[in-house]
Design a protein around this nucleic acid. Structure first.
Lengths: 240, 240
DNA sequence: CGAAGGGTTGATCAATTTCAATCGCGGTGG
DNA sequence: CCACCGCGATTGAAATTGATCAACCCTTCG
């Protein structure tokens, strides 16, 4: 079974065999979770770093009025914040969206690995910068894109991220998220997401159904979204 | 003249006299900028790290349709991303909003300082985590708060951040930003911001005028915003 | 078979944008 | 010193987007 964490970090820095086996060793005892299970909750004391190996996970926050906002999707290969242990308590929760297998790496273990493997350290820092770029892109989307642009932009992002870790088949990839989950990520209503998806389908840009997305016309989707992949910093991956 | 970068980092980790003088030395040759000057533009190759010593600066992005979204405000003491040099090019611009004095620290110099001063390194990592928390809070605001809540939340955030570096006077602090700038940060229209500010004034929560904010009723402002200061991780500052 | 959750659609409502004008004030040139 | 200029603030009215409310359908699952 391919280790997606290795796959992802390989895309961010040049890793040698020693680096790879160190990563594989560190993630060799993952745990399996059912959907909707909190890995950590808002207010908890931060624990080890999580690395998603399979399935989908999200960062989220529940507001006093009960509304949920999802702030990030973690797909296989993604890890949560490096230095998280420095904080006294979590300011948001992390929850599985599907069945997921997740490895944990203690801060000490991670620190030791980064000390012994500078390439891994560089990859982790780059990953963090990309994650920040993604957060900024979400802010831009929520602030200045309308609903159809927002949906299109998110799908572009997820498609490229999935492709980067080898999870796409041609123009299709698994997106096992309900419309309610997408709505909570995009700051919209599930009802409205539904109408937007219909519009994108009628436009011939993409279709979402039964847990997977088909990109019918990537150029059109990109144009609708005003998508510029620059922020995913794939150029880093030119070392492939 | 107080060095706000020292002030800020002191709030995030325990710094000794050596640490402080290292920071002061690194920021001893700042440059002065007029308002609306780009420190770096989207697409540029990343250069040294910027540290804002005086004035206001923002991260921003311009969309194809010409709309601007501000993704972060940097106030005195704030620095831009640590590992930025790892990226091939900037995915956003950084621009002054007011007259500002900004120091630059090269990646090598920063790295050397963090190696020699672990406390500084810890403070920098904490600062980064707080910045990420702020970004997540912005996503939550844009996604799930209405306009009055959004404005109130931003003012709460800026007030506490300003207080943390000693820039408040009782219930007042300088906020030399036009309503258009606030609008571009909050994903709203300047016209609508204006109406919301009027509402907040009539509610007796706060007033904004002539470049400064007066918090009339902090409890009410917090209640309107649904503000929870947890995400600013001030607990770290208990070492004061 | 029945219940539950997710998806789909229509009708209406509310928040926010857009468009258009006016106001006020600091700075500038005459 | 004063008229003029221009940007930012302010207000009103109309237009638009997206939310809300309410059904209904379909599939899955116990």
């Amino acid at each position: 079974m391919l280790n997606r964490f290795v796959k992802k970090l390989s895309g961010l820095a040049v890793l040698g065999p020693n680096d790879v086996s160190a990563i594989e060793h560190a993630t060799s005892r993952p745990r399996r979770f059912a959907p909707r299970k909190d890995l950590i909750r808002e207010g908890d004391e931060p624990g080890p770093m999580f690395v998603v190996l399979e399935g989908w996970v999200c960062r989220y926050k529940i507001l006093p009025n009960g509304a949920r906002q999802i702030m990030a999707f973690l797909m296989p290969g993604d890890a949560c914040d490096l230095h998280i242990k420095l904080l006294a308590e979590m300011d948001h929760g992390i929850q599985t969206l599907t069945h997921a297998t997740v490895a944990t790496i203690s801060r000490d273990e991670m620190q030791a690995m980064m000390n012994r493997h500078p390439n891994i350290a560089a990859a982790m820092y780059s990953a963090q910068l990309v994650d920040e770029g993604i957060m900024r892109a979400w802010i831009v989307s929520m602030g200045r894109r309308n609903s159809i642009e927002r949906v299109a932009h998110l799908v572009c992002e997820l498609y490229l991220r999935a492709r980067g870790i080898g999870l796409t088949h041609d123009d299709e990839f698994a997106l096992p998220l309900s419309q309610l989950v997408l709505a909570d990520a995009l700051g919209m209503t599930a009802v409205h997401i539904n109408r937007v998806l219909k519009e994108l389908r009628l436009e011939g840009a993409m279709t979402l159904g039964r847990g997977s997305v088909t990109i019918c016309d990537l150029a059109k989707l990109i144009q609708i979204a005003g998508f510029d992949e620059n922020y995913l910093h794939r150029r880093l991956r030119s070392v492939d």
